[in-house]
């Protein structure tokens, strides 16, 4: 596995696939088709984009000017901020994959993950300059910041739709339908997880209390 890390072509391929994200966000339909079908993308690049996205979200918390963002530090939990991206992403990939495999979706789990991560690209791309900008705006100019902030999110959302169209080879309406269905699937997964954890807690506490009881009596 590590042998490939020593080869130069591994890196050229990695950087080429990472650079390909820039093509994807400007030519979504064409880009996402080639991403999976022509193998222009890579999981490594997807992981990198995800990592940068999370890092930018955390940087945003700390470096955004106080005109825009006031942070109540005593209540900040950095893991919650990381989970706010990673956890829904994981749920979405699993939920979407689970549904689409039943309905002629062509995408594999890894492809769904890769395409979704590539769709995140506009977020760090716009947010990094926005962090700088937030430090030099006055209250009146803040509106521009908020607009660009929204643009980065809407752009990413549209890219996710485009990605799903190409990965699953669906029509637009079917994709939108299955994206909404995926949201419900995510809810179901959350419900099952909650159920699972509370059952485990109950089960464990049964044995713990039984052990205690016995240790008192014996």
């Amino acid at each position: 596995m590590f042998a490939s890390l020593k080869k130069k072509e591994t890196y050229t391929k990695y950087f080429a696939s990472l650079k390909y994200a820039l093509y994807c966000i400007t030519h979504p339909l064409d880009g996402f088709w080639d991403l999976t079908h022509e193998k222009r993308g890579s999981i490594a690049a997807a992981n990198t984009i995800l990592f940068i996205t999370v890092a930018v979200k955390l940087c945003k918390l700390y470096f955004t000017g106080f005109m825009i963002n006031q942070v109540y530090w005593p209540e900040i939990n950095i893991f919650m901020h990381i989970a706010a991206i990673v956890f829904p992403l994981a749920l979405f990939c699993v939920g979407n994959w689970g549904l689409t495999t039943l309905f002629d979706g062509k995408g594999k789990l890894s492809q769904i993950y890769m395409a979704t991560c590539y769709a995140f690209t506009p977020y760090p791309l716009l947010q990094i300059p926005l962090i700088f900008m937030s430090n030099v705006v006055t209250a009146e100019e803040a509106q521009l910041y908020y607009t660009l902030n929204t643009v980065s999110l809407v752009w990413a959302a549209l890219l996710i739709v485009a990605a799903m169209i190409q990965v699953h080879e669906y029509s637009v309406s079917k994709t939108v339908l299955f994206l909404i269905a995926s949201l419900f699937a995510m809810l179901v997964i959350v419900f099952v997880l909650l159920l699972f954890f509370s059952m485990i807690t109950q089960g464990l506490s049964y044995f713990v209390s039984m052990y205690r009881e016995m240790s008192f009596r014996l």
């Binding site: 106080f66 006055t138 209250a139």
Partner: peptide, 15 residues
Amino acid sequence: KYDRSNYSRAFKEYR
């Protein structure tokens, strides 16, 4: 002390 309106006013002049 998070006074945004006054900060904004001062920042405009400072900039």
